[in-house]
């Protein structure tokens, strides 16, 4: 949502939003533009901070349908404007065209915000969990998002290659100790460190490992940091 902080709304759209809210509260049966779009955004808002709720393709398509409808209605009205010689009702038609235009823009904006926010969350997944999407998350993404993730992954890797292979995702906290004591929370099996040493990570055992090895395992929840 950060990218959409910026331009101030103009008067008309402010009035529109307030009306929207009012109608939602008072007369939920009245059909207003932008309801589905608000649903989209609310869905994301409710989701916990680092999670991605399933892709709401249906609502997205519904919003697009609405935009189409608005666009066609506007087309019709523009046609009417041009055909009609009588300028008395021009003002009204112009107002309704303007109103519909704002509604359309708002819908578009909600759509962009929805997708952008999801992309941001995906990005933080890449930084926290590495280049492979876990299966549970994979099922909540749309195809395009998966493509985007893969290409982001490639770009990031290429960038890090330029840096002599410095892996930016590893050193995320200031290092205090070279070795840390960890307790194993899940049965992980054999784990091979960068030095080539294989350690058997069984549940409830405790080990001493270099910090760089453990960081991503701690983030995944396999290990837990303990103090001596």
């Amino acid at each position: 949502m950060r990218a959409l902080i910026g331009p101030k709304e103009n008067q008309a759209s402010q009035v529109y939003y307030r009306t929207l809210w009012w109608t939602d509260v008072q007369r939920p049966s009245l059909k207003m533009y932008g309801r589905r779009a608000t649903d989209l955004i609310r869905g994301l808002d409710r989701a916990a901070e680092n999670s991605i709720p399933p892709y709401n393709g249906e609502t997205v398509r519904a919003v697009c349908e609405e935009i189409k409808d608005i666009f066609e209605a506007n087309q019709q009205d523009t046609g009417r404007l041009q055909s009609q010689a009588d300028t008395s009702s021009h003002q009204n038609i112009l107002h309704s065209i303007h109103f519909r235009h704002i509604a359309m823009e708002r819908n578009k904006r909600c759509l962009v915000a929805y997708h952008y926010n999801r992309a941001e969350r995906l990005r933080s997944i890449r930084w926290n969990l590495g280049g492979i999407i876990p299966r549970e998350i994979r099922s909540t993404l749309s195809e395009k998002e998966v493509e985007w993730f893969n290409s982001y992954n490639t770009e990031l890797t290429n960038y890090m290659m330029e840096l002599d292979g410095l892996n930016l995702t590893v050193h995320q906290r200031p290092p205090k100790e070279h070795f840390i004591h960890v307790r194993v929370l899940l049965d992980y099996g054999d784990y091979e460190t960068e030095d080539g040493e294989t350690i058997h990570l069984k549940k409830y055992t405790r080990h001493v490992l270099p910090r760089t090895e453990c960081e991503h395992l701690i983030r995944q929840g396999v290990l837990e940091h303990v103090h001596v």
Binding site: I67, K68, K108, H115, A119, W148, E155
Partner: peptide, 20 residues
């Protein structure tokens, strides 16, 4: 790539040629 994602997720369902 981000522009692609944002456009292609919705463009198929919008009237043709409408900029997103």
């Amino acid at each position: 790539k981000t522009d692609e994602l944002l456009t292609n997720s919705v463009a198929p369902y919008l009237p043709t040629g409408m900029p997103v």
